[in-house]
Design a protein around this nucleic acid. Structure first.
Lengths: 193, 193
DNA sequence: CGGAAATTTGAGAAACATCAAAGTAGGTGG
DNA sequence: CCACCTACTTTGATGTTTCTCAAATTTCCG
């Protein structure tokens, strides 16, 4: 249980066995079947979730019912409605499982306790958020400055595993366009080669 | 010198006078005239910059010479090419002054030393990056899911001071559209009221 | 195998970009 | 303080890109 999480903390954040035993008491395991919700818009987000196995997505829904995917999370990634988690406000995002998944949940109390007790935990969190910030910045730059073909090729080369594992309409949603348009973008790319 | 920076650290991050004296030795003040560069694409980004006074922008430039504004920074904000700062790679962004500005620079060495010496500094940095991440996430969600009119009105209500102090074409660049299109968006909004 | 979900294709509409030109505002030197 | 120059904004005409709606095809799963 929590194997990948512990492995990550050990190798990427320099935790030792003693630290990990402290952390273990603060974690909650959870399994989710495909299409099950982890978080629904409007509920407070009580956990930061580490993906041990499987694939989740976070998305928002507008008045017309259209979905906009904000983030995917593969094995080893964190996912949350961070604003809701930190403030206690109702979540604006919905999170559900794209595949059957196994998760490690960190509650708000656990998070604060770990921040207080383990400086290495804060350092790890800081580095994770920094990486997430940089990834978002790249994504935003791509949206603003690249053509659709460039963006799709950038996405497939950066995240080939996501492309393999999610339906195409979800990638279209992630890119902010319709499934029809993405289909045509892909056609153009293959015709070009 | 560094007044706003110290004020911020005192009120938002719980620093005391003794901490601040430690920090003072690591800071560099700098003044920049309007249009002067703080960082040029290709150079390594050696500083995180805190804006004491004035207004900066960070932007990238594509092959055709078009500019895409990634970020504005008003008084009290931080700005940097964070990826370059952390890795030492050449910067992909250019940063310059939109107005005459006064800055407080934190070098890479200073940053690492402060992270090591002052836990409060790490906490402050973590919270700043978290806020920046959440702001980027909001911005990306807006780009993907809102109409141009909604996005422009969202921007003006969130950052009325930037709208006042920056030429309109820079806001168009920030939003990823042409000045002509933004002009027409504004026209539609005023006609509607 | 059958049905539902996903992808592709097509045609027409809407949104946005481009190019060109006119109008406006701000700042600087005379 | 005015005149002028430059930078910025607006307007117009046209072209391209993307969306929408509809239908045909393919893929996946029970």
């Amino acid at each position: 249980m929590h194997e990948l999480f512990f492995h990550t903390l050990r190798t990427k954040a320099g935790f030792n066995d003693q630290d990990l035993e402290v952390i273990r008491t603060h974690l909650t395991p959870k399994k989710l079947r495909k299409k099950q919700y982890l978080l629904q818009e409007g509920d407070p987000c009580k956990y930061v979730t580490f993906v041990e196995k499987g694939l989740l997505r976070a998305y928002s829904i507008d008045e017309k019912g259209s979905e906009y995917i904000i983030q995917f999370a593969l094995e080893g990634w964190l996912i949350s409605d961070l604003y809701s988690f930190l403030t206690g406000e109702p979540a604006t995002y919905t999170i559900d499982a794209v595949e059957d998944s196994e998760l490690t949940l960190i509650s708000r109390n656990a998070h604060e306790e770990l921040l207080r007790a383990l400086p290495k935990y804060e350092t790890w969190i800081r580095m994770e958020i920094t990486a997430a910030y940089l990834a978002l910045q790249r994504r935003l730059t791509a949206v603003i400055s690249l053509t659709l073909e460039e963006r799709y090729e950038g996405f497939t080369s950066l995240y080939p595993d996501i492309v393999q594992r999610v339906p195409q309409w979800m990638i279209a949603s992630y890119m902010g366009l319709t499934p029809e348009t993405l289909s045509r973008v892909r056609k153009k790319i293959t015709e070009r080669k």
